[in-house]
Design a protein around this nucleic acid. Structure first.
Lengths: 132, 132
DNA sequence: TCTATATCCTGTAGTCACTACAGGATCAAG
DNA sequence: CTTGATCCTGTAGTGACTACAGGATATAGA
C-alpha cells in the first residue's frame, strides 16, 4: 500500500485532477488524508474506488446513482438481485435514449435527402424546420 | 396578425414560458415588443421563429448552432448546399452518440446476464465495476 | 364594486458534471 | 540555487434550462 499523490491517482485512473477534487468536495470520494504539507495522499483502496466511479460514469450512471450504489456496497447491504435490477433499469434508460437519437437521425437524413444541394437560397430543410 | 401574450405563445409552441424569457435574455429570440403595461407582445412571426427553434432543439441542435442557422436564414446569405452539409454533420454527431450509447447498453446487458440474481451479496456486476 | 384567481414582471439562484482559471505554496532535479 | 513540475484553495464559467421570491396587473364572477 504505497501512497500516491493526486497526480498519480489521476494517471492510474484516467480521472482528471480537478475532477478528483470535485468528487471530494461533493462527497463522492471520502476526504483524502493529508500529508504534513497539506497535500492529499491516496492508496490502492482509493484507486479501486475511483475506478468504480469512473467505470460507472462511462456507463452513463449519474453521480447520484453511483453514490447509492457505493453506499450499498459499503454497508454490504445489497443483494445480487438488487444490483441486477438497478442495472436493467439503467440499461432501459440508455435504450430509450438510443431510440430518441435514432428518430432524430432519421429525420435529419430524410431532410437532407430532400435537399437539392443547389446554390439557391430556397431549401427544403429550412422550410421543414419552419413548418409547425 | 393578432397579438399574443407570452402564455399563449407558450401554448402555441409548446415552449415553457421561462424558457421563452430565457431565449430573449440570451438573444436567441429578439427582444419582444412591450405593451403599455410592460407585458411582452408576440405575433405569428414569433410563433414561426419559436417553432423553428423548438424543432431544431428537438433534433439535438445546440442553441449556438440554431443561432447561426437563423442568422443564415435572416440574412438570406445561405445556399441549400450549405444547409445540407450542416445537417449531415449534425446527423453524424447524432450517429456517433448512438454508437456510444449502444456500447454502453451492451456492457450493461452483458453484466446483467452474468448475474445470478440471487439473494447473496456477492455480485458479478459490482465485481466487474471494481476491476480496472 | 369588490374580490379571487390567473397571468405577468424582474432578478436571482439552482441543476448536473465537470472544467478553467488566478494566485500562491512547495517539491524534486540539475 | 534556480527552474519547472506539482500541488493547494477558492471562485467562476459551461449549456440549457428550471424554480423560486416578491411584486404588479388583468380578468371573471358575485
Amino acid at each position: 500500500m504505497k501512497p500516491y499523490a493526486i497526480g498519480e491517482l489521476s494517471d492510474r485512473t484516467g480521472v482528471n485532477i480537478e475532477t478528483i477534487r470535485y468528487y471530494e468536495r461533493e462527497a463522492i470520494l471520502p476526504k483524502a488524508v493529508r500529508a504534513s504539507n497539506g497535500r492529499r495522499i491516496y492508496d490502492d483502496e482509493d484507486v479501486k474506488r475511483l475506478h468504480f466511479i469512473h467505470k460507472c460514469r462511462s456507463l452513463g450512471f449519474t453521480l447520484k446513482e453511483i453514490i447509492s450504489l457505493m453506499s450499498l456496497v459499503d454497508t454490504g447491504n445489497y443483494t445480487c438481485k438488487q444490483v441486477h435490477e438497478l442495472t436493467l433499469v439503467h440499461a432501459k434508460e440508455v435504450r430509450d435514449k438510443i431510440g430518441d437519437l435514432k428518430r432524430m437521425e432519421q429525420v435529419l437524413v430524410e431532410m437532407a435527402d430532400q435537399c437539392s444541394q443547389g446554390n439557391v437560397a430556397q431549401c427544403p430543410i429550412i422550410d421543414s424546420l419552419f413548418d409547425g
